[in-house]
Simulated scan of single mutants.
Amino acid sequence: MLSDQSLARVRDLKFKQLLVFERVATLGSMHKAAEAVHMTQPNVVKIVRQLEELLQVTLFERHSKGVRLTVFAEHLLARIRPMLGDARALSEELEALRSGEGGQVAVGTLISASAWLLPESAALMKRRHPKAGLLIQEATNDILFPMLRVGELDVIVGRLPENPGEGVEMHAIYDDELMIVARASHPLSRQPACAPEDLLDYPWIVPSNSSPVRKQVDRFFRGRDLPIPHNQIVSLSMLTNLGILARSDALAMLPSVAARPLIQVGVLFEVPIHVRVPFGTIGYSLRADREPVPAAALFIGILKEVGARAQATGGVPPAG
């Protein structure tokens, strides 16, 4: 049972204080938090001090580049993030009820979905439901799944991980493979075939170590007793990667559903290595303990429809 003093502290907590605290803790800066919540920096500092006085703890240690969380702040942040996520979901549900089909869906995505499945689905969503908002964030699984669990994201679209952790349910849409690609006028395009060791002569665009594509790149070379390419550009940005491919002799592994349309229009070509690299199952992930907000439910239906349409036309193989 809470003591009278603890009850008094909880009663005096204000939602704005927790919201400001969360932004400061997440962004690591009073200045950035002030911009995010549309307040002046002195007001943000004042609110943080009020919260520290109320809780009788120090939440942040100031340094030249921003702030560092104390152990008290880490515990508080872990407690309030799910609450703030639920508050956001409630706001979206009320907005959807008020407007008929409005609200917003927060989508996390990986490079495996950001070039085809997500753009196709987002475009169809806006055509059918123009009042619904889409907030899209591209990152890796180690960033996206914690955000999903606390309600900062409604859905994650991309390659389904082998172990997403507790509290997550995954839904398959289609299976994909990786293709080794380069610009259409690449020197390798003049060869009828090439060996895996030939690929070491060129720069490689690879994602970060935590990406499943990166693991497949490393496995491709190690499985053939070849060294990992040392001439690397590490990038998670599909747009940047395509720009680099177009302007250099770099090579990359891309999901086939992203690469094929660019090969068909003559932007890229598939390196004649005659090897198919398995990638995994593409789909979407949700929180297991909560129904999607109305806008998210609409978007999930569209994801399924786009995937089913592509399977029917032979664009992608079914999952499984």
Rank of each mutant, 00 (worst) to 15 (best):
S6Q: 15
A8K: 00
A8F: 09
R9T: 13
D12F: 04
Q17C: 02
V24R: 08
A25W: 06
A25N: 04
S29V: 06
E35N: 12
A36W: 03
V37G: 14
V45Q: 13
K46A: 12
K46W: 08
Q56I: 00
F60P: 06
R62C: 07
L76D: 00
L77V: 01
L77F: 01
A78F: 01
I80V: 12
L84K: 00
A87K: 05
R88Y: 15
A89I: 03
E92G: 08
E93C: 11
S99H: 09
G102D: 13
V105N: 10
V105M: 09
A106L: 06
V107L: 10
W116C: 10
L117D: 09
L118F: 12
L118T: 11
L118A: 13
S121C: 10
S121W: 02
L124F: 03
R128Y: 03
K131S: 09
L134V: 01
I136C: 01
D142Q: 00
D142W: 00
I156G: 05
V157F: 12
G158T: 06
P161D: 07
N163D: 09
E169R: 12
H171D: 05
A172G: 11
D176R: 00
L178Q: 06
R183S: 14
R183P: 06
S185L: 09
R190C: 03
A193M: 14
C194G: 12
A195F: 07
P196F: 10
P196Y: 07
L199R: 11
W204I: 02
V206H: 04
P207W: 06
S208H: 13
S211V: 01
P212E: 03
R214W: 10
F220K: 00
R222K: 12
R224P: 05
P227N: 11
P229L: 08
H230L: 06
V234P: 09
S237P: 03
N241T: 14
G243W: 10
A250N: 11
L251G: 13
A252V: 14
V257D: 15
L268Q: 10
E270K: 06
P272H: 11
H274Y: 11
F279W: 01
L286D: 02
R290C: 07
V293C: 09
A295F: 10
I300K: 03
I300C: 13
L303S: 00
K304E: 14
K304L: 05
A308F: 01
A310M: 12
A310V: 04
Q311P: 01
G314K: 13
G315H: 07
G315E: 14
G320S: 03
